Simulated assay, not measured.
Amino acid sequence: MLIEGQIISGEFDSTVNEFSLRKVKNVSTVTTIKENQLTNLYHYLKKHENDIDGQIITLYDQIPILLTQEEVHLFLKDLDQVQSMYH
């Protein structure tokens, strides 16, 4: 199932219960996120969602992406959508 969120996009494969992340903001990527990884990311962002300076996440532990406070909120909404698909 294709997911086009405000911050992320990708495809959820229910047969293997994994989300293939294809894009974060305007940066293309190809990475697979298991349920526990998504949960950890969600809880971290939720804990810091009100930080005025936003958050920096990295892709491949090398490419930093700045998320403003508003983008963190949008990212959390996107993650909610993905999280609901895991079984």
Results as ranks from 00 to 15, higher is better:
I3E: 07
D80Q: 00
P64E: 03
V72M: 05
E18I: 06
L79P: 02
L59F: 04
M85I: 00
L38C: 11
D61N: 14
V16A: 02
D13S: 06
N40H: 13
L21W: 01
I63R: 14
I63C: 09
V16R: 11
Y60T: 09
Y60H: 14
T68A: 05
Y42H: 10
D80W: 00
E70D: 13
H87R: 12
N26S: 15
T15N: 14
I33N: 01
L79D: 01
V30W: 06
N26D: 15
M1E: 05
G5H: 08
I57H: 04
H48I: 06
D61P: 09
Q69V: 06
V82T: 03
K34T: 09
V82F: 04
K77V: 02
I65D: 01
L21V: 07
N50K: 13
K25A: 14
Q81C: 09
V24F: 05
E35Q: 12
N40K: 15
F75N: 03
K34E: 12
K25C: 14
Q37V: 07
E71H: 04
T39Y: 05
T68R: 12
E35W: 05
K34V: 10
L38Q: 07
H73V: 09
V27C: 07
N26K: 15
H48A: 09
I7M: 08
E49V: 13
Q6C: 05
S84E: 08
M85A: 00
D13V: 06
D51Q: 13
F12T: 03
Q37W: 02
L67S: 05
I33C: 03
Q69T: 09
V16Q: 10
